[in-house]
Amino acid sequence: MAAKAPDRRRNNPPSHGTTPPVFLSSSSGPVKPKQSSRPPDEIRKIFLRTGLISSVTGSSFLEIAPLKLSVSVLGPRPLPRTSSTPFAAQAILTTEVKFAPFASTVRRGYIRDSSERDLGSRLYQALVGAIRRELYPKSRIEVVVTILDSEDEGDDVNTVYIEEGKTTVETKFWDAGRSERALGVVLAGCITAASAALADAGIEMFDMVSGGVATSFVDEVSLKGKDRGDAVSNKLYVRDPAIVPPEGKAPLATCVLGYMAARDEISELWISGKVGTKNGTAEMDELVDEAIAAARSARGVLNEASKERVKFIVDKSGTAPPTEGGTTDVEMSG
């Protein structure tokens, strides 16, 4: 294993190099991952809470089943005073998405990889249109997303199967859209949580953006057959899809979007996979509509979280004085 250049700002792994653990599965028919009993038009329960980090302007924490992420919003604060800083009539938004090293099946490094940069730029697109940036000239707003845990490809990537005495590295439960689906769920979560954090920071927005994701599935058999065009009728749309496809289904396409419900506007749209060619527009519309429906559901959670926070602040300032400000044991006059 070729040793990478050492990171001089961190402790480095042993010079021998290490490999992720590889599992050996000897059973010829490995256990299928369990199916969720959730109806396809229902999204998973979302836990969303804002204002947990006191030292930043706005923050939120989101949990959807295994996905756990924390968002902090820094700013608006002045741009650094360097000669190279251009004049900015509008606030400059930066978004950063970083997986924790222990957030996925394969350990990630600290340097951001391409998928993290991609998620960051998609999140930027989703948010940048919603923020009233012209109200914050010559300043910057930073949105930092830290993903602590996520649902991804699963242990399949580092499992070796023994078949008839020989080992094979072929993955058993692999389907083409799996990583897109995993990233899509992460991105939708990022969008929803980032809006909540921006609202917590008191940054003015046209509307809060919520993220939605939907995947279209077809029967596995019909995908293999020649007459793929006929399969359009029996498509199954799943909102907020889990990583494991429904029994006997194969994924066609995944759609992730950022949606402003009050204005009925889409700020970010990302479709990957196969959308049929014959009546393509209809198929795509259906897929987008499903994703919008998922985003609407997420918006409900977003509203509740914001309301909860406002209520908390009002209660705190209204009745009981804050603990820090309320201490009267020190003579303050002078």
């Binding site: 050492p6 001089r8 700002r9 961190r10 480095n12």
Partner: peptide, 8 residues
Amino acid sequence: GVAGVRET
């Protein structure tokens, strides 16, 4: 070598 965390 180059400075690392120990030197910092």
